[in-house]
Amino acid sequence: MTEMKSVGRLFQDERKLQHKTLEDIAKRTKIHVEFLSSIESDDFSALPQGPFVKGFIRTYALELGLDPEHVLAIYRRDFGVQPQQKLVPDGVLYPLKRSVWRWFSPKTLGALIVTCVAGVFLIFQLISLQRLPIVVVSSPSDNTSTKSPVFVKGRTDTDVVITINDAQISLNQDGEFQTSLELSTGDQTITVRAENRKGKSTIVRRSISVVQ
Rank of each mutant, 00 (worst) to 15 (best):
Y60F: 13
Y75R: 06
L126H: 14
D24A: 00
F44Y: 15
A118P: 03
R77G: 00
F124L: 15
V53S: 11
Q84R: 08
S138L: 06
V100N: 02
L126E: 15
I113L: 10
D24N: 06
V100G: 00
Q130V: 00
G55R: 07
R76V: 00
G65W: 05
H32Q: 15
I74N: 05
K30Y: 07
V88E: 05
G91L: 04
S37W: 00
Q85G: 03
S45Y: 01
R98K: 12
S105K: 12
P106K: 00
V114A: 06
R77E: 09
E40C: 03
Y60R: 11
R58Q: 09
V81H: 10
L129S: 06
T108C: 04
L72N: 10
T59A: 14
P68N: 12
Q125C: 14
A111N: 11
W103H: 15
F104M: 04
I25W: 00
E40R: 01
G50F: 01
V71F: 01
S99T: 04
F79L: 09
D43T: 07
V100H: 04
Y75F: 14
L112Q: 07
L87E: 11
K30E: 14
A26H: 02
T108G: 06
D78L: 07
V100D: 09
Q82R: 06
W101Q: 14
F35K: 03
L66N: 12
A111H: 09
Q49W: 01
R76H: 04
K86I: 01
V120S: 08
L66H: 09
L64H: 14
I39T: 02
V92W: 08
R131S: 03
Y75E: 08
Y60P: 08
V53H: 12
V53D: 10
P106G: 00
L93M: 07
P68L: 09
F52P: 07
F52R: 15
A46S: 09
I134H: 00
A111W: 00
S45M: 06
A46Q: 13
G110S: 02
Q84I: 07
P51D: 13
S38D: 14
I31E: 07
K97W: 03
D43P: 02
F124P: 04
G55T: 12
R76D: 11
V53A: 13
V135S: 00
H70T: 14
Y60M: 13
A118V: 10
V71M: 11
D67N: 15
L47R: 06
L129P: 01
C116K: 07
L132E: 02
L132R: 03
S99D: 08
F44W: 04
F56A: 15
R131K: 05
I74R: 11
V92C: 05
Y60V: 13
F121N: 08
S105G: 02
P51Y: 08
S138I: 10
I39A: 00
P89E: 04
F44E: 13
V71D: 12
V136N: 06
S105T: 15
A118G: 08
R76P: 02
I25R: 02
P48N: 08
G110R: 05
L109Q: 09
L96Y: 02
V81C: 05
A61Y: 12
V71K: 10
R77Q: 06
